[in-house]
Amino acid sequence: MSRLPVAKTYKLFIGGAFPRSESGRVYDVATPTGEFIANASKASRKDARDAVVAARAAVAKWSGATANNRGQVLYRIAEMLEGRTAQFIDEIQKSTGASAKDASAEVHAAIDLLVWYAGWTDKYAQVVGGANPVAGPFFNLSVPEPTGVVAVVAPQTGPTSLLGLVATVAPALVTGNTVVVIASESSPCAAMSFAEVVATSDVPGGVVNILTGSPTEMTPWLASHQDINAIDLTGADSELALACERDAAETLKRVVRPGQFSATLGSIDRIGAFVETKTVWHTKSLS
């Protein structure tokens, strides 16, 4: 008996839920040879706005969690991803045309990267923070703190529909930031399946928000948004990145430029792009 295949409509991931775009728009996702794979939601600026509200609401809980707990949760994402390796390999192959070997390598690299960043959660403060030497009976301590809500334009090209997303999102999560990320427009399937992984990995709702659609349409709204603390423009083309950096300056956002960090490798400096250093003085004793 023949059967009609059920084509998936990928939704957005906002505040721990999977809503359609408020605009009602969808777009076709196709293989490099033009064959239809699935429908994906085309997010609007209002979806981006809603995602920022969700991300802002999640900052207190995520940044207030212990570093150990954040590490456990990031490791949990890696675990869940491992269990669904086959699905991701299939999705990456279909949407990017990668070979089975390359797709498999990409998924494994993404999992390893998550484990690597998970390990940094309770060690990062030791590396970049510490006691400063002062000439007086005081402790002078510097500690890195999360900056808040981070907007990310994930890499749009190359074999990076999953790895590029993980490489840009994970470092922001390490110190307790929450993220609104615009996934790869042309191959969003792996990104939205990653959302399903995140949703089942004890990540509090709103900590990771994933939008699919046009970065050219949404990024300027995020760059000028007054309730975002940092923007990672890794996946933006140079013209868009320049305009967005100019807008971001209006509200003193931290900006990561395209090419500033590798789109696939882990980097401790990338964690540092989304922290603020707090320095406190404290008397050595009360006597």
């Binding site: 706005r49 920022v52 802002r56 709204w221 000028s224 948004h225 007054q226 309730d227 975002i228 807008d247």
Partner: peptide
């Protein structure tokens, strides 16, 4: 202003 505002404002 033409840009989204936030609770800081």
């Amino acid at each position: 202003t033409g840009r989204y505002s936030g609770p800081d404002y």
